[in-house]
């Protein structure tokens, strides 16, 4: 079953009178439980593509489907809900809240999910902190963690809501290559265990090789799709 479908998606940014095309006629389909990457040079449109899938932006033309919902049909409130419940985000610069400790950072998205009880909340946070190997760091502030550890917190935060899709825009770009690979491996483990769909972007050839499928982006177009396994 497909979780993400893009049909003839284009996106241009208006800069004054000129229009900058970032994506040009993208067609793709990602199945549930896949572990895929958007690979490409700087400026090729990776972030733009992930933002469209993540309901953070709307395409200029074309359709973006998450499950059986057409994203352009959603109002603001529904977009918030979709980002909260269907999608988990991991960012290049971790984007943790500095005044909150590790536990509280992971707790953030759960706070606004009314159906998750306090008890369930604690259970989930403990589970995912354990999964990313940070159980003993729960009380630390982000500033007291290494880059790799911070990204693990972000992974846990993206997963606690049990989303269908996790989007990670260059999750390894601010990490050294060893730590970067560790983060990708962590994501891979979770992908296998939880059957969560992962879509990440990278320009690092070593990192992209970890994916099951690689979408090669060049100048806003999918030039090639590579199946690894």
């Amino acid at each position: 079953m497909s979780t993400v479908i893009l049909q003839e998606v284009s996106k241009s940014y208006e800069l004054g009178r000129t229009s900058v095309p970032a994506l040009r006629g993208i067609d793709l389909e990602i199945q549930e439980g896949e572990f895929v990457t958007m690979a490409g040079a700087s400026g090729s449109g990776k972030s733009t593509l992930l933002n469209l899938i993540g309901c953070l932006d709307v395409p200029t033309t074309g359709e973006v489907w998450i499950g059986d919902t057409l994203v352009s049909d959603l109002d603001d409130k529904q977009l918030n809900e979709t980002r909260l419940r269907q999608i988990g985000f991991i960012f290049q610069s971790f984007n943790l809240i500095p005044v909150l400790n590790v536990y509280e950072n992971v707790e953030l998205p759960l706070l606004i999910m009314k159906e998750v009880s306090k008890k369930e909340r604690k259970k989930r946070i403990d589970y995912f902190l354990n999964a990313v190997g940070l159980s003993s760091f729960a009380d630390r502030k982000p500033s007291e963690l290494s880059g790799g550890q911070r990204q693990r917190v972000a992974v846990a935060r993206a997963l606690v809501t049990k989303p269908r899709i996790v989007l990670a825009d260059e999750p390894t770009a601010n990490l050294d290559s060893k730590t970067g690979i560790e983060i990708i491996e962590l994501m891979q483990q979770i992908n296998k265990r939880e059957k969560t769909t992962f879509i990440f972007s990278t320009h690092d050839p070593k990192v992209m090789q970890r994916a099951n499928r690689i979408f090669h982006l060049v100048d806003g177009k999918i030039e090639k799709v590579e199946n690894i396994r």
């Binding site: 993540g54 953070l56 603001d76 409130k77 918030n80 809900e81 980002r83 909260l84 419940r85 988990g88 985000f89 960012f91 984007n95 809240i97 500095p98 953030l108 998205p109 606004i112 935060r157 809501t161």
Partner: peptide, 11 residues
């Protein structure tokens, strides 16, 4: 920070 919160579903 606000952008991050908005991204993860805060209205």
């Amino acid at each position: 920070e606000i952008g991050t919160l908005r991204a993860i579903g805060y209205s």
